[in-house]
Protein backbone atom coordinates (compact mmCIF):
# COMPACT_ATOMS: atom_id res chain seq x y z
CA UNK A 1 0.00 0.00 0.00
CA UNK A 2 1.47 3.33 -0.99
CA UNK A 3 1.48 6.10 1.55
CA UNK A 4 -1.06 8.88 1.15
CA UNK A 5 0.44 12.25 0.20
CA UNK A 6 0.08 15.16 2.60
CA UNK A 7 1.10 18.79 2.04
CA UNK A 8 1.71 20.94 5.09
CA UNK A 9 1.48 24.73 5.47
CA UNK A 10 3.54 26.64 8.02
CA UNK A 11 4.61 30.27 8.51
CA UNK A 12 8.06 31.81 8.43
CA UNK A 13 8.53 31.37 12.14
CA UNK A 14 7.90 27.63 12.25
CA UNK A 15 9.98 27.25 9.06
CA UNK A 16 12.83 28.79 11.08
CA UNK A 17 13.28 31.58 8.53
CA UNK A 18 12.78 34.21 11.19
CA UNK A 19 10.39 36.08 13.41
CA UNK A 20 8.40 39.23 12.83
CA UNK A 21 11.25 40.75 10.81
CA UNK A 22 10.84 37.99 8.21
CA UNK A 23 7.02 38.01 8.11
CA UNK A 24 7.12 39.53 4.66
CA UNK A 25 8.57 36.45 2.91
CA UNK A 26 6.72 35.23 -0.14
CA UNK A 27 5.38 31.71 -0.65
CA UNK A 28 7.91 28.98 -1.26
CA UNK A 29 7.75 25.19 -1.58
CA UNK A 30 10.16 22.72 0.00
CA UNK A 31 10.26 18.97 -0.43
CA UNK A 32 9.40 16.84 2.61
CA UNK A 33 8.44 17.77 6.16
CA UNK A 34 9.84 20.74 8.02
CA UNK A 35 9.59 22.05 11.60
CA UNK A 36 6.33 20.84 13.17
CA UNK A 37 5.76 18.66 10.09
CA UNK A 38 8.50 16.36 11.37
CA UNK A 39 6.34 15.50 14.38
CA UNK A 40 3.53 14.21 12.17
CA UNK A 41 5.72 11.47 10.65
CA UNK A 42 5.62 8.96 13.51
CA UNK A 43 1.90 9.50 14.00
CA UNK A 44 1.17 8.84 10.32
CA UNK A 45 3.20 5.61 10.34
CA UNK A 46 2.70 3.62 7.15
CA UNK A 47 -0.50 5.41 6.20
CA UNK A 48 0.71 8.81 5.06
CA UNK A 49 3.67 11.10 4.76
CA UNK A 50 4.28 14.79 4.34
CA UNK A 51 5.63 15.05 0.81
CA UNK A 52 6.07 18.78 0.81
CA UNK A 53 5.82 21.93 2.89
CA UNK A 54 4.53 25.31 1.74
CA UNK A 55 5.74 28.34 3.63
CA UNK A 56 4.54 31.93 3.65
CA UNK A 57 5.23 34.96 5.83
CA UNK A 58 2.26 35.98 7.96
CA UNK A 59 2.34 39.61 6.87
CA UNK A 60 2.71 38.75 3.22
CA UNK A 61 -0.26 36.38 3.35
CA UNK A 62 -2.57 38.78 5.18
CA UNK A 63 -1.61 41.83 3.15
CA UNK A 64 -1.77 40.06 -0.23
CA UNK A 65 -4.33 37.40 0.49
CA UNK A 66 -5.56 36.75 -3.04
CA UNK A 67 -2.10 36.60 -4.61
CA UNK A 68 -0.72 34.55 -1.76
CA UNK A 69 -3.55 32.06 -2.02
CA UNK A 70 -3.13 31.73 -5.79
CA UNK A 71 0.64 31.20 -5.57
CA UNK A 72 0.30 28.68 -2.74
CA UNK A 73 -2.50 26.80 -4.49
CA UNK A 74 -0.31 26.34 -7.56
CA UNK A 75 2.49 24.87 -5.45
CA UNK A 76 0.13 22.66 -3.46
CA UNK A 77 -1.63 21.35 -6.54
CA UNK A 78 1.68 20.43 -8.14
CA UNK A 79 2.53 18.22 -5.15
CA UNK A 80 -0.66 16.15 -5.82
CA UNK A 81 -1.74 15.83 -2.19
CA UNK A 82 -4.45 13.53 -0.84
CA UNK A 83 -4.82 15.75 2.22
CA UNK A 84 -3.77 19.23 3.31
CA UNK A 85 -2.77 20.32 6.82
CA UNK A 86 -2.11 23.88 7.99
CA UNK A 87 -0.51 24.89 11.28
CA UNK A 88 -1.18 24.47 14.13
CA UNK A 89 -1.30 28.22 14.64
CA UNK A 90 -2.07 28.25 18.40
CA UNK A 91 -2.98 31.85 19.33
CA UNK A 92 -1.01 33.59 16.54
CA UNK A 93 -3.71 35.73 14.92
CA UNK A 94 -2.37 36.35 11.41
CA UNK A 95 -1.02 32.79 11.19
CA UNK A 96 -4.44 31.49 12.25
CA UNK A 97 -6.22 33.52 9.60
CA UNK A 98 -3.72 32.31 7.00
CA UNK A 99 -4.19 28.66 8.05
CA UNK A 100 -7.97 28.99 7.86
CA UNK A 101 -7.96 30.85 4.55
CA UNK A 102 -5.54 28.57 2.72
CA UNK A 103 -7.29 25.45 4.07
CA UNK A 104 -10.62 26.71 2.83
CA UNK A 105 -9.13 27.57 -0.56
CA UNK A 106 -7.53 24.12 -0.93
CA UNK A 107 -10.78 22.43 0.07
CA UNK A 108 -12.76 24.40 -2.49
CA UNK A 109 -10.23 24.37 -5.34
CA UNK A 110 -8.69 20.91 -5.04
CA UNK A 111 -11.61 19.11 -3.41
CA UNK A 112 -9.41 17.20 -0.95
CA UNK A 113 -9.88 16.92 2.81
CA UNK A 114 -8.18 19.68 4.81
CA UNK A 115 -7.65 20.51 8.44
CA UNK A 116 -5.88 23.01 10.57
CA UNK A 117 -5.42 23.63 14.27
CA UNK A 118 -5.52 26.68 16.51
CA UNK A 119 -6.58 28.07 19.86
CA UNK A 120 -10.32 28.70 20.15
CA UNK A 121 -9.81 32.45 20.67
CA UNK A 122 -7.62 32.85 17.60
CA UNK A 123 -9.52 35.22 15.27
CA UNK A 124 -9.01 32.67 12.50
CA UNK A 125 -11.11 30.19 14.46
CA UNK A 126 -14.22 32.31 14.38
CA UNK A 127 -13.70 33.16 10.71
CA UNK A 128 -13.18 29.63 9.41
CA UNK A 129 -14.61 27.16 11.95
CA UNK A 130 -17.72 26.47 9.92
CA UNK A 131 -15.74 26.15 6.66
CA UNK A 132 -13.01 23.70 7.70
CA UNK A 133 -12.18 21.39 10.58
CA UNK A 134 -10.07 23.32 13.08
CA UNK A 135 -8.57 21.17 15.82
CA UNK A 136 -8.75 22.96 19.15
CA UNK A 137 -5.23 23.52 20.53
CA UNK A 138 -3.66 25.27 23.50
CA UNK A 139 -2.73 28.93 23.17
CA UNK A 140 1.00 28.47 22.63
CA UNK A 141 3.49 26.08 21.07
CA UNK A 142 3.84 24.40 24.46
CA UNK A 143 0.78 22.45 23.28
CA UNK A 144 2.50 21.23 20.09
CA UNK A 145 2.72 17.58 21.05
CA UNK A 146 -0.97 17.42 22.01
CA UNK A 147 -1.99 19.35 18.88
CA UNK A 148 -0.05 17.03 16.58
CA UNK A 149 -1.59 13.99 18.26
CA UNK A 150 -5.13 15.25 17.75
CA UNK A 151 -4.54 16.64 14.26
CA UNK A 152 -2.87 13.49 12.99
CA UNK A 153 -5.68 11.34 14.39
CA UNK A 154 -8.28 13.44 12.57
CA UNK A 155 -6.14 13.47 9.42
CA UNK A 156 -5.94 9.69 9.39
CA UNK A 157 -9.71 9.43 9.82
CA UNK A 158 -10.14 11.69 6.80
CA UNK A 159 -7.63 9.74 4.73
CA UNK A 160 -9.38 6.47 5.56
CA UNK A 161 -12.77 7.98 4.76
CA UNK A 162 -14.03 7.23 8.25
CA UNK A 163 -16.97 9.30 9.49
CA UNK A 164 -15.96 12.31 11.55
CA UNK A 165 -17.48 12.24 15.03
CA UNK A 166 -18.83 15.04 17.17
CA UNK A 167 -16.52 17.93 18.03
CA UNK A 168 -15.85 16.56 21.50
CA UNK A 169 -14.83 13.19 20.07
CA UNK A 170 -12.50 14.43 17.36
CA UNK A 171 -11.34 17.54 19.21
CA UNK A 172 -12.28 20.16 16.65
CA UNK A 173 -13.85 23.53 17.32
CA UNK A 174 -17.66 23.17 17.06
CA UNK A 175 -18.83 24.18 13.60
CA UNK A 176 -22.25 25.43 14.62
CA UNK A 177 -23.69 22.10 13.54
CA UNK A 178 -24.99 19.72 16.15
CA UNK A 179 -23.61 16.21 15.79
CA UNK A 180 -24.85 13.27 17.86
CA UNK A 181 -22.52 10.93 19.69
CA UNK A 182 -22.79 8.14 22.22
CA UNK A 183 -21.15 9.08 25.51
CA UNK A 184 -19.54 6.58 27.85
CA UNK A 185 -21.77 7.68 30.73
CA UNK A 186 -25.51 7.98 30.52
CA UNK A 187 -27.03 11.47 30.65
CA UNK A 188 -28.10 11.31 34.29
CA UNK A 189 -24.59 10.54 35.48
CA UNK A 190 -23.17 13.32 33.33
CA UNK A 191 -25.67 15.69 34.93
CA UNK A 192 -24.71 14.62 38.45
CA UNK A 193 -21.01 15.00 37.62
CA UNK A 194 -21.62 18.44 36.13
CA UNK A 195 -23.60 19.56 39.18
CA UNK A 196 -20.87 18.39 41.55
CA UNK A 197 -18.31 20.43 39.63
CA UNK A 198 -20.60 23.47 39.60
CA UNK A 199 -21.17 23.11 43.36
CA UNK A 200 -17.41 23.05 43.95
CA UNK A 201 -16.88 26.02 41.60
CA UNK A 202 -14.75 23.81 39.38
CA UNK A 203 -14.75 24.29 35.61
CA UNK A 204 -17.28 22.23 33.68
CA UNK A 205 -18.29 22.17 30.03
CA UNK A 206 -21.94 22.57 29.13
CA UNK A 207 -23.05 20.29 26.31
CA UNK A 208 -25.00 23.07 24.62
CA UNK A 209 -24.06 26.74 25.10
CA UNK A 210 -27.14 28.98 25.14
CA UNK A 211 -27.77 30.49 21.71
CA UNK A 212 -28.21 34.14 20.86
CA UNK A 213 -31.36 34.82 18.85
CA UNK A 214 -31.29 37.42 16.11
CA UNK A 215 -33.73 40.30 16.04
CA UNK A 216 -35.72 42.09 13.36
CA UNK A 217 -36.82 45.72 13.67
CA UNK A 218 -40.58 46.07 13.89
CA UNK A 219 -42.38 47.20 10.74
CA UNK A 220 -44.39 50.40 10.97
CA UNK A 221 -48.01 49.97 11.99
CA UNK A 222 -50.77 49.47 9.44
CA UNK A 223 -52.10 52.97 8.68
CA UNK A 224 -55.71 52.06 8.07
CA UNK A 225 -56.59 48.60 9.29
CA UNK A 226 -60.18 49.11 8.05
CA UNK A 227 -59.03 48.89 4.47
CA UNK A 228 -56.14 46.49 4.93
CA UNK A 229 -55.86 43.12 3.25
CA UNK A 230 -54.77 40.68 5.95
CA UNK A 231 -53.47 37.13 5.63
CA UNK A 232 -53.73 34.29 8.13
CA UNK A 233 -50.73 32.07 8.75
CA UNK A 234 -50.43 29.28 11.31
CA UNK A 235 -47.86 26.89 12.70
CA UNK A 236 -50.75 24.92 14.23
CA UNK A 237 -50.99 22.51 11.31
CA UNK A 238 -54.59 23.16 10.22
CA UNK A 239 -55.01 21.55 6.78
CA UNK A 240 -57.87 20.24 4.65
CA UNK A 241 -58.90 16.83 5.95
CA UNK A 242 -56.72 14.05 4.63
CA UNK A 243 -53.66 16.33 4.71
CA UNK A 244 -53.30 16.58 0.89
CA UNK A 245 -49.74 17.96 1.07
CA UNK A 246 -48.62 15.26 3.54
CA UNK A 247 -47.23 17.82 5.96
CA UNK A 248 -45.32 15.87 8.60
CA UNK A 249 -46.74 15.70 12.14
CA UNK A 250 -43.31 16.75 13.39
CA UNK A 251 -40.15 18.17 11.77
CA UNK A 252 -42.15 19.59 8.88
CA UNK A 253 -40.37 20.05 5.57
CA UNK A 254 -43.43 21.53 3.85
CA UNK A 255 -46.16 24.06 4.26
CA UNK A 256 -49.58 24.25 2.65
CA UNK A 257 -51.43 27.08 0.90
CA UNK A 258 -55.18 26.67 1.07
CA UNK A 259 -57.96 28.55 -0.70
CA UNK A 260 -60.53 30.32 1.47
CA UNK A 261 -62.72 31.51 -1.40
CA UNK A 262 -66.31 31.02 -0.27
CA UNK A 263 -65.18 29.62 3.08
CA UNK A 264 -66.90 31.41 5.96
CA UNK A 265 -65.54 29.29 8.74
CA UNK A 266 -63.35 26.19 9.07
CA UNK A 267 -65.73 23.29 9.33
CA UNK A 268 -64.62 20.27 11.33
CA UNK A 269 -65.84 18.14 8.44
CA UNK A 270 -63.38 19.72 6.04
CA UNK A 271 -60.35 20.73 8.12
CA UNK A 272 -58.23 19.11 10.83
CA UNK A 273 -54.78 19.50 12.33
CA UNK A 274 -51.73 17.56 11.18
CA UNK A 275 -49.73 18.71 14.21
CA UNK A 276 -48.32 15.89 16.34
CA UNK A 277 -47.22 17.97 19.30
CA UNK A 278 -50.45 18.81 21.09
CA UNK A 279 -53.76 17.20 21.93
CA UNK A 280 -55.58 17.57 18.59
CA UNK A 281 -59.14 17.03 19.87
CA UNK A 282 -59.93 20.75 20.43
CA UNK A 283 -58.54 21.92 17.11
CA UNK A 284 -60.30 19.12 15.25
CA UNK A 285 -63.61 19.93 16.93
CA UNK A 286 -63.39 23.52 15.68
CA UNK A 287 -60.37 24.45 13.53
CA UNK A 288 -61.32 28.17 13.90
CA UNK A 289 -59.80 27.83 17.37
CA UNK A 290 -56.43 27.77 15.62
CA UNK A 291 -57.09 29.63 12.36
CA UNK A 292 -59.87 32.16 13.07
CA UNK A 293 -61.41 32.36 9.61
CA UNK A 294 -64.88 32.78 11.14
CA UNK A 295 -63.88 35.93 13.00
CA UNK A 296 -62.04 37.39 10.02
CA UNK A 297 -65.19 36.98 7.92
CA UNK A 298 -67.22 38.76 10.59
CA UNK A 299 -64.62 41.54 10.69
CA UNK A 300 -64.91 41.87 6.92
CA UNK A 301 -68.68 42.30 7.15
CA UNK A 302 -68.33 44.79 9.97
CA UNK A 303 -65.69 46.63 7.93
CA UNK A 304 -63.20 46.34 10.77
CA UNK A 305 -60.73 45.09 8.17
CA UNK A 306 -60.54 45.50 4.41
CA UNK A 307 -60.43 41.85 3.47
CA UNK A 308 -59.09 38.45 4.36
CA UNK A 309 -56.45 37.32 1.87
CA UNK A 310 -57.75 34.51 -0.31
CA UNK A 311 -55.27 31.87 0.88
CA UNK A 312 -54.04 30.86 4.28
CA UNK A 313 -50.67 29.26 4.91
CA UNK A 314 -50.15 26.42 7.33
CA UNK A 315 -47.32 24.29 8.60
CA UNK A 316 -46.59 22.17 11.64
CA UNK A 317 -44.39 23.93 14.17
CA UNK A 318 -43.43 20.78 16.05
CA UNK A 319 -39.73 20.04 16.22
CA UNK A 320 -39.55 21.81 12.88
CA UNK A 321 -36.13 23.20 12.07
CA UNK A 322 -35.93 26.98 12.25
CA UNK A 323 -34.19 26.86 8.90
CA UNK A 324 -37.23 25.19 7.29
CA UNK A 325 -39.72 27.55 8.90
CA UNK A 326 -37.62 30.49 7.75
CA UNK A 327 -37.56 29.20 4.18
CA UNK A 328 -41.36 28.70 4.17
CA UNK A 329 -41.96 32.27 5.31
CA UNK A 330 -39.44 33.71 2.86
CA UNK A 331 -41.26 31.98 0.05
CA UNK A 332 -44.87 32.84 0.86
CA UNK A 333 -43.98 36.38 1.95
CA UNK A 334 -43.01 37.09 -1.67
CA UNK A 335 -46.53 36.19 -2.73
CA UNK A 336 -48.01 38.29 0.06
CA UNK A 337 -45.99 41.33 -1.02
CA UNK A 338 -46.94 40.84 -4.67
CA UNK A 339 -50.59 40.53 -3.72
CA UNK A 340 -50.44 43.68 -1.62
CA UNK A 341 -51.17 42.00 1.66
CA UNK A 342 -50.62 44.68 4.30
CA UNK A 343 -50.52 42.62 7.47
CA UNK A 344 -50.26 39.06 8.73
CA UNK A 345 -51.87 37.41 11.71
CA UNK A 346 -49.80 34.39 12.66
CA UNK A 347 -51.22 31.92 15.14
CA UNK A 348 -49.23 29.30 17.03
CA UNK A 349 -50.22 26.38 19.16
Amino acid sequence: MSKKRVVHYINQFFAQIGGEEMAHVKPEYREGPLGPGLAFGPAFGDHAEIVGTVICGDSYFNENMEEAKAELLKMIKAAKPDLFIAGPAFNAGRYGVACGAISEAVKNELGIPVLTGMYEENPGADMFKSAVYIVSTRNSAVGMRDAVKKMSALALKMLKDEPIGASSEDHYIPQGIRVNLFEKDRGSKRAVDMLLKKLKDQPYVTEYPMPAFDRVDPQPAVKDIRSAKIALVTSGGIVPKGNPDHIESSSATKYGRYDLEGVNYLSKNRYATAHGGYDPSYANEDPDRVVPVDMMREFEKEEKIGSLYRYFFSTVGNGTAVKNAKAFAEEFSKELIEENVQAVILTST
Binding site: D214, R215, V216, P218, Q219, P220, A221, V222, V233, A325, K326, A329, E330, S333, K334, L336, I337, V341, Q342, A343, V344, I345, L346
Partner: peptide, 11 residues
Protein backbone atom coordinates in the same frame (compact mmCIF):
# COMPACT_ATOMS: atom_id res chain seq x y z
CA UNK B 1 -39.37 37.18 11.84
CA UNK B 2 -39.10 36.31 8.15
CA UNK B 3 -42.50 37.83 7.40
CA UNK B 4 -41.48 40.99 9.22
CA UNK B 5 -38.11 40.97 7.46
CA UNK B 6 -39.94 40.74 4.13
CA UNK B 7 -41.62 44.04 5.00
CA UNK B 8 -45.05 43.05 6.29
CA UNK B 9 -46.15 43.92 9.82
CA UNK B 10 -47.13 40.74 11.63
CA UNK B 11 -48.80 39.99 14.93
Amino acid sequence: KEIERAGIPVV
